[in-house]
Design a protein around this nucleic acid. Sequence first.
DNA 1: CTTGAGTTTGACCAGTTGGTCAAATCCGTG
DNA 2: CACGGATTTGACCAACTGGTCAAACTCAAG
Lengths: 209, 209
Amino acid sequence: MPQANSPTKGRKETRIQKKNRAAILDAALDVFSAHGFRGSTVDQIAKASGLSKPNLLYYYPSKEEMFTALMSNLMDTWLDPLREMQSDGDPMTEILSYVDRKLQMSREFPRESRLFANEIVQGAPRMLETLATELKDLVEEKALVIQGWMDAGQLNQSHPKHLMFSIWALTQHYADFDIQVRTLMGAEDPYDAAPHHLETIFRRLLQPS
Amino acid sequence: MPQANSPTKGRKETRIQKKNRAAILDAALDVFSAHGFRGSTVDQIAKASGLSKPNLLYYYPSKEEMFTALMSNLMDTWLDPLREMQSDGDPMTEILSYVDRKLQMSREFPRESRLFANEIVQGAPRMLETLATELKDLVEEKALVIQGWMDAGQLNQSHPKHLMFSIWALTQHYADFDIQVRTLMGAEDPYDAAPHHLETIFRRLLQPS
DNA sequence: CTTGAGTTTGACCAGTTGGTCAAATCCGTG
DNA sequence: CACGGATTTGACCAACTGGTCAAACTCAAG
């Protein structure tokens, strides 16, 4: 009984493998982001992807592996906006652009945002390693950049890491708490005013006085 | 077979009922906040409360009812800080005090914060009604108060609802994303700098220019 | 068209889970 | 201390869940 190679060690991916793996991960994103890892069943993902349960397990040998494959696939994309923040740009522009990109991601990829939120709220049992290495390295690097801007007087003094937390909190809130935001705003689209609101917050916070 | 009365319609609660119900809800808070509704088992709650599973179900007839009892018990406490915001106080003081109280709640009641976060991230399947009535009424009321302050020139113009979202996002982030925040901050206690950081953000945002 | 690797699935299994129930035990009150 | 309601639990059940497996089917290359 041949087994579909895992995407990492696989030599050549067939047309069918490519299509099915994509369908599975998209369905898994739907289901995991809506119910969390424990709250999701392989059957739900099977139904959502249009494949049978044993067929899912032919491509990914366990529910756990579906989840981790999904997570590591997404992690890079998720951190891209922060990576794009360049130390040689204009500080205020760099920060505000980062905020804007991050808000765009909440709007365009709310499932991804909720997937991470679910995982982290529950203590990140399957992601702690990544947080402590990949994310931490990136954060330390960018915190130094921001600190440099502040020391040079190009931005108001503030705590770089808390600044980053604030950017994440404010932007991701619109994706993670979408149902609450929309319930409270009624017909008005949250994203009409959010970009201007967030820009104002960070411009006022960081504008040197 | 007598059945313990539900707390709402129960005439007199015995000493034992009082103690056990409290133990159950505290254990349920531990478990539900850490794993979400679907990810928690009645057995886990039983173990955490020191009671047997059938005994739990003697006090609360289903897992669902444990959850909703817990939720409605907590909802009032959770909204208290916002209720305390008085229209006849000094606007800046009222807002900053609200931010401070909300941050304190994240510090003192992280389980409660994560319980709500879990529920809302997953679309609030068991709480949408409460959001749409109790919370919405309160938010509409306070949005008017804030709008009044802004129209009177006592605060900078801003979007009152987005302002409230920002307060929630920034304060609850420290409880809901605790594991991430602590992983990235290392030995430094997040709550050392958070109060000052948040005060600065909102003071700069709202200070009339 | 053959062929063999790649793909798909129905049937199945063992462990878990929410919930039930009758019997046993506890406990405040008359 | 006797009694009846309150409390507790071991044993049990049906549904669900993650995962297995052998057999059947598909498909591209020769």
